[in-house]
């Protein structure tokens, strides 16, 4: 009863209600919205978001943040492209490379930020530029078309309706929540985020969980990059620009505190659903791009505001 405390079930219900509300609302606004095609498009959109949101939640629970995940999606994706197109390796090998690169860069961010005592905000802001630059270098500034092999990850499995990517993302969410609720590392993440001094005095080696959270997020971003490639069928060094903001928005809508000490992967999952549904719904309702951004921005702030109010009562 620690990751999912009392009242947490109520939080989940509130988020579910918001999601259902959005579905109904957009169903009213545009006729074709409540269709398998829409749900399919949402399901196809979210695996990458879900994976990274899971890792981001774990990191934000410790009070850290990673702004470089968008660039990392671009760079790891480029690695997939180079490995598969230029070197002709298989998909599993490419996935392994992508995860390795993500893990490496995530760990670097973590080590630099924790050991050199720099705010993770600053360190990953630097990494945002570094990884994007590496992406362009590795791809020679050209998109690489990969094709069917990788697209199959995003295509629904026959008879199952959902794609391997989606299943994998769900698995990550489940494992992420389990990690937070049932493991020693999960406890340490929360304790470090809630009160790092108290955690240190309680005998927790506080650097380790913080670095681990960065590394884990990096690895998950590596997987997300593969799914992003599968959606594009190609490796594009531009991929993932602005992705970090969508992820952070979803995590925050899910009620995770930017200050650390509080967060739930399950709620981030609903946050992702809400953000993705909002995106799809606004397009279908005919909202123009500027209007979409205004609405999305307001919804994020109001969602977080409502959450804070509920907590205070």
């Amino acid at each position: 009863m620690f990751g999912l405390k009392r009242g947490s079930a109520a939080d989940l219900l509130v988020l579910l209600a918001v999601w259902a509300g959005l579905l109904l609302l957009f169903g009213q606004l545009s006729a074709g919205f409540l269709s398998p095609a829409t749900l399919g498009s949402v399901a196809n959109r979210i695996p990458a978001l879900l994976l990274v949101a899971t890792g981001m939640t774990l990191l934000m629970v410790t009070g850290g943040i990673d702004l470089s995940v968008g660039s990392l999606v671009g760079f790891c994706g480029t690695v997939v492209g180079v490995v598969m197109v230029d070197w002709g390796w298989t998909l599993p090998a490419a996935v392994a490379c992508s995860i390795a690169v993500g893990l490496l860069l995530g760990s670097v961010s973590g080590l630099v930020s924790v050991k050199l005592r720099l705010p993770s905000f600053i360190v990953t802001l630097g990494m945002l530029e570094v990884a994007r630059g590496l992406a362009f270098l590795a791809a020679h500034s050209r998109t690489k078309y990969i094709g069917d092999t990788i697209e199959s990850l995003g295509t629904p499995i026959a008879g199952l309706v959902v794609s391997p990517a989606f299943l994998c993302a769900l698995l990550a969410v489940a494992l992420g929540q389990a990690l937070l609720s049932y493991t020693v590392l999960g406890r340490q993440l929360v304790a470090v985020g809630a009160n790092i001094e108290a955690a240190r005095i309680s005998g927790i080696a506080v650097d380790r969980p913080r670095i681990a959270a960065h590394a884990l997020l990096g690895a998950l971003t590596g997987v997300a990059a593969v799914f992003n490639c599968s959606r594009l069928g190609s490796a594009d060094p531009n991929a993932g620009v602005g992705f970090e903001l969508s992820v952070i928005a979803a995590v925050v809508v899910g009620g995770t505190s930017l200050l650390g000490g509080r967060g739930s992967v399950a709620k981030s999952f609903l946050g992702v659903l809400i953000v993705a549904t909002l995106e799809a719904g606004l397009v279908q309702a005919g909202a123009s791009e500027p209007l979409k951004r205004v609405v999305t921005g307001v919804v994020i702030v109001v969602a977080v505001l409502a959450d804070t109010w509920r907590r205070r009562d």
Binding site: V184, L185, R187, A191, A194, N195, I201, G261
Partner: peptide, 30 residues
């Protein structure tokens, strides 16, 4: 400042220093 995770539960705080004794392979035994 140094003793408690103030927003967490009593249980969370009580076991914080002795997680190793109540867990196996890194998984806490509820």
């Amino acid at each position: 400042r140094y003793g408690l995770c103030i927003e967490q539960s009593i249980g969370f705080n009580l076991s914080l220093s002795s997680l190793a004794q109540v867990s196996r392979c890194g998984v806490v035994s509820r």
